[in-house]
């Protein structure tokens, strides 16, 4: 894949794009969180990714894996709530998959898998619990198969993963929450879209857009 400079640039651009997007979607995410949560997911995510994008903006000669790690640690210390440790901690921990060979098609699959594992581990949410896991699982599964079995180019694989995530987001609507604040609503959580699954989709869409640039 590309050299370290290009990789760094890609991480910075992705962080910037995600931060911009989450700023745009802040109100919508907060509205989703109002219906079945506590109305802070938009603020949490946009505050966190803006800080993360700023943090990686001028670290010139860091390893790409370190930049990714820094996104994670910044989220940990800026987001709080449930999404802080879930997004931040998992990115931080999964960033190790880039340590040896940088960001390649193969390591990106490892990253995705490690990230999913960490989210599930930390949040203890199985699929179908109406959380970000429901967007993440189909996306990661699809990405891995597209690259490892179907030999698709990463961009195309990412495109398929985004579609999968989108279906995952839709899937959260008609089910009952088992984790997160929404679980407190019991059956009343049915019929609402999960905020964390939605922000996961937006982040993936921006990764795709960055890759397409």
């Amino acid at each position: 894949m590309a050299d370290a400079d290009t990789q760094r640039e890609a991480v910075r651009a992705a962080a910037e794009n995600v931060a911009d997007r989450l700023e745009d979607e802040k109100e919508y995410l907060t509205d989703l969180d109002s219906a079945i949560g506590d109305a802070d997911h938009g603020a949490n995510m946009s505050r966190g990714f803006r800080a993360a994008a700023d943090a990686v903006a001028d670290a010139d000669d860091a390893e790409p894996s370190d930049l990714v790690k820094q996104v994670g640690t910044t989220l940990i210390s800026e987001v709080g709530g449930a999404s802080g440790p879930l997004y931040g901690g998992s990115i931080m921990s999964a960033s190790q998959t880039f340590a040896e060979d940088g960001i390649t098609a193969e390591t990106s699959v490892d990253f995705a898998e490690a990230y999913l594992d960490k989210v599930k581990d930390r949040g203890d949410a199985r699929i179908g619990a109406k959380t970000m896991v429901d967007a993440l699982t189909p996306a990661v599964h699809t990405y891995k198969k597209s690259i490892e079995q179907d030999d698709l180019p990463p961009l195309e694989a990412l495109g398929k993963a985004v579609d999968a995530a989108e279906r995952g987001v839709e899937f959260t609507v008609p089910i009952r929450a088992e984790k997160g604040r929404a679980s407190y609503l019991g059956w009343r959580s049915v019929g609402h879209q999960d905020p964390g699954a939605t922000s996961t989709l937006y982040i993936m869409e921006e990764l795709l857009a960055t890759a397409e640039e």
């Binding site: 506590d38 109305a39 802070d40 603020a43 949490n44 505050r47 940990i76 210390s77 800026e78 987001v79 709080g80 709530g81 449930a82 802080g84 440790p85």
Partner: peptide, 12 residues
């Protein structure tokens, strides 16, 4: 004290 209704971060 986290942000409103948002858990404080681990480092805090």
């Amino acid at each position: 004290a986290g942000e409103v209704f948002t858990s404080p971060t681990g480092d805090q």
